[in-house]
Design a protein around this nucleic acid. Structure first.
Lengths: 226, 226
DNA sequence: CGGCGGCTTGATCGGTCTCAAGTACGGTGG
DNA sequence: CCACCGTACTTGAGACCGATCAAGCCGCCG
């Protein structure tokens, strides 16, 4: 079994989440103003696959993973969401993947119905929803292409992606475990570990602690995408 | 080199494609009424990756594939579009993948600008665009999950998908070559061929001609998705 | 009837998985 | 402060699946 069990796993239900229709800007703006905040512990479920998609979430701190359990028991992680990222927005009534906090995480929550009903009145807001979904589409397309590559290429792409998303001067503090990375890349934990060790020996990266990555040679990593 | 070269490859530019803003229904309805029609020969390019996305397309007859060439020369097919399917719609200015006719294909064409400007006035139309993109998103997510499976599972899923999309009574006439299938599934042509032969020997399918598939045991194919 | 492209089948190779130890690290209790 | 423990991670050896390389086969069109 590749996954840890959640510590607690109740469906997320925020205390309050009202939305003013007179909002000046797009559908997600309100998240910074109103929208109730919630916190989740490590591995705690935020929502489950095929649950009604009642809320839209924005990561405030920590990190979130979405995933599906494949029929053979393996877990495929669909995405990692980092501070500032929005997730859980669905067009249909139910979620397509489950979501869990990776470590301790804080998220802001908005009622989906508020977002959708705003879009029905405000075409600008509607366009923003469309744009958001299109961005997700592109992300998933990229992820799909990733899964067609070799292990080296996948790990290199992952490191570059993470460095772009949360880099502080070439050093990246990964919020997720090797198992999470493996399940995101469609590899085993051993292959991820071995590949990183290889990058260290090639001086492409430094690995002072297992979750701290120093990108020493971005060019080499990028060329692996060959 | 896994791919054939296109016979002709000019960018698609329809002769005329005006759009009435007073259209009664959603943004794609007009495709059936007005919208110019074009035909493409086998392997002819419809649009290229990173070309400006000026048009939206609807397949009338034949089949279309979208794809990317990976940096190592392999081709990853993103989707097959069959009669009735819409493709080529982008939120941004440029296409994310290239598109080619597989065999001889006819498509109807609509100016993207017409679709988008309608959505700016009509929130219902905007919602339809959003729904369309969300459906694409789900399709790509499914495709991503496919690539995480074994060869048997991928081929079985592909056959089931095709049978649902163009089945006439358990017999499917595939419009695409083994190479197309392989590039869609992230496998080699040999593995696709071998796997199909295995399914034949297990009596899960019949294969009277190489492109004609008879689904003899859907349950067995579905269970492979284990 | 000949040739060519698309498909199938066979033999071998290699990359990733699997199974199995070993190691580093953070937390807890003495 | 240190000893101990459990978890996460690394490393090694061997198996396995799908890729590669290489023939054949089939059907179609001249």
């Amino acid at each position: 079994m590749p996954t840890q069990m959640p510590i607690r796993s109740f469906a997320a239900v925020p205390a309050t989440a009202s939305y003013s229709p007179a909002s000046t800007r797009g559908p997600f703006e309100a998240m910074n103003l109103m929208a109730s905040q919630m916190t989740f512990g490590p591995n705690e479920e935020i929502f489950g696959e095929s649950e009604p998609a009642e809320y839209v979430y924005k990561v405030i701190s920590g990190a979130v993973r979405t995933y599906k359990i494949l029929s053979d028991g393996r877990r495929q992680i669909g995405a990692f969401y980092l501070p500032g990222d929005i997730f859980g927005l669905e067009v249909g009534k139910t979620h397509q993947l489950s979501a869990e906090a990776i470590g301790k995480a804080a998220v802001r929550v908005l009622r989906r119905s508020a977002v959708v009903s705003l879009a029905e009145r405000d075409c600008g807001a509607a366009r923003e929803l469309w744009t958001f979904t299109a961005r997700e589409l592109r992300r998933v397309q990229q992820h799909m292409l990733l899964l067609a590559k070799s292990a080296q290429q996948r790990v290199a792409s992952f490191l570059l992606e993470m460095s772009e998303r949360l880099a502080a001067a070439d050093a990246v503090e990964l919020p997720m475990s090797r198992q999470d990375i493996a399940d995101y890349l469609g590899l085993t934990i051993e292959t991820v570990s071995r590949t990183m060790s290889q990058f260290v020996s090639e001086a492409a990266i430094g690995l002072p602690k297992s979750r701290r990555i120093v990108l020493r040679n971005r060019v080499a990593l990028r060329q692996l995408n060959a």
